[in-house]
Write a protein that binds this DNA or RNA. Structure first.
Lengths: 204, 204
DNA sequence: ATTGACATGTGACACGATGTCATATATGAT
DNA sequence: ATCATATATGACATCGTGTCACATGTCAAT
């Protein structure tokens, strides 16, 4: 988390710095990114950077988190739209994400994140699901899911269902970028796999 | 890949260096590991290191690959043992992996790898499945899988089935370490999710 | 308007890591 | 014994990080 000093900064200066950070993280993945470049682009002295953030990772995850915020809202919206059908909601969400691509810089940032995912990055990215199992947000999601459709005995299994969906959805996401699939291919694969998930991998 | 020079080295010296590398990668994740430490532990001059490997990543992936080799054979064995039931084979494989833990150093190495997985690391680790879609090994696996049990129309879908299983298995694996689950919990979760995969997330 | 306490800005610096290269040494065939 | 080729070595240039002593700004109290 950024330090208070950063949050006290005038809007403009803050955005300027975040933009410079995104530029650097779009250029190269986290561990190759250099603070020297960020401060150069932002036109601030090196010392100031450390006034605002602990280190490189601190800006990185702050940025990632900021860019995920509205995705979370969008997901809730999709879940309502599909009357709690979680797989339909996820599929639609995925589709829309691919179609209305963010600007190039943000896209490169996402690519770099996906191809170098750590567990921490995956969690930040997929925080629309798990983040924190007792959070307000998670509660709302679980409430919205139509359990009637699901092949479960107890509520406890919802957790496993979401885990499975996250795992498969995320892997599709990563594959799309690592194997440079077209949107069409990516969505086809995604749909096939989601159907297999729905109906089971084994014959009944 | 290591350079020829490295492969020409006497067995003992090679093992010594690999052991030193593993020690460093067990201590910290890839991007924090330092070549300085490796050469110090191995007792070789810095220049020699670059005689043998391109860079840090080069040793890292070589090590990872070496340690995965016999896991691949073991997986084939499991698949035969379970008459081509891929989910039973994977579950058994997972169980055995957890139970007969490798030595502490290798375990720490694996932990660091799992908690900082990049797409490349995941692929190296899970090469018992996909590695290269046209490899000899993949062919054998596909041949061994009992397609009769699977809910598929064409062979093409086998690929998706394995993708799904990899995704879910791998995530369970990462969770086991990141959330420090006991072996018992880990295997319980794994089994529940594999059953959900078999029978489908949705009611029929 | 002056003071002082506190917050923020600044960049030189100590430290450590990387990859290279000129030079030294070993090896093995003729 | 000679020479070509392969290997060994460690000093070095370069770059990146995080810190710290010092400079500057802010603002409430007098």
């Amino acid at each position: 988390m950024p330090k208070q000093t950063f949050l006290n900064l005038p809007e403009q200066k803050r955005q300027n710095l975040m933009k410079a950070a995104e530029e650097e993280f779009a250029r190269v993945p986290l561990h190759e990114a250099s603070i020297a470049n960020i401060v150069k682009t932002a036109g601030i002295p090196r010392g100031s950077f450390y006034q605002y953030f602990e280190d490189k990772e601190d800006v990185y995850f702050y940025l990632l988190q900021e860019e995920t915020k509205d995705r979370k809202l969008k997901f809730i919206h999709k879940l309502k739209e599909h009357n709690g059908d979680i797989i339909d909601a996820v599929t639609d969400f995925y589709y829309e994400f691919l179609v209305e691509l963010p600007d190039e810089q943000e896209l490169d940032f996402i690519k770099n994140a996906l191809l170098n995912v750590t567990h921490k990055i995956e969690n930040a990215f997929m925080s629309m699901f798990d983040e924190n199992q007792t959070s307000e947000y998670t509660n709302e999601i679980v409430k919205l899911i139509d359990k009637g459709r699901l092949n479960i005995q107890s509520d406890k299994e919802i957790f496993h269902i979401t885990q499975i969906i996250i795992a498969v959805a995320f892997r599709n996401f990563v594959e799309k970028f690592s194997r440079e699939l077209s949107d069409k291919e990516a969505i086809e694969n995604f749909t096939i796999e989601m159907n297999l998930l729905k109906n089971g991998l084994y014959k009944t």
